[in-house]
């Protein structure tokens, strides 16, 4: 199995740059995922559970960004 796993970059600079790139990708995936969840009628509570962070954290990060986009989460459970 081990021969199918990618090697860690030999140069630490490459490894650390990969971390930066992954964080940026994770951010973009979160933005897109939250938008999709909102469109599907998810509540902030449900998104927070799925992301493993507090409801306040998800709300703070995304509510303002998505205000006026026509997407609105409800507080109630579906």
């Amino acid at each position: 199995m081990t021969d199918t796993l990618p090697d860690l970059p030999a140069d630490p600079a490459d490894g650390l740059a990969a971390v930066v790139a992954l964080r940026r990708l994770a951010d973009r995936l979160e933005d897109a995922g939250v938008e999709r969840a909102l469109a599907d009628g998810w509540t902030w509570e449900q998104m927070s559970e799925a992301l493993g962070v507090t409801r306040q954290a998800v709300h703070k990060k995304h509510a303002k960004r998505l205000a006026g986009s026509g997407l609105a989460a409800t507080r109630r459970k579906r």
Binding site: A18, A21, L22, R28, E35
Partner: peptide, 28 residues
């Protein structure tokens, strides 16, 4: 290109993900 190469170093191809073409609005 640098973003793609750095992701590739972690075994990730950006093309594997369906991301919105237009960037998201900034959070603040």
């Amino acid at each position: 290109r640098e973003h793609e190469l750095s992701l590739a170093a972690a075994g990730v191809a950006i093309g594997d993900f369906e991301l919105p073409a237009t960037p998201p609005r900034p959070r603040r």
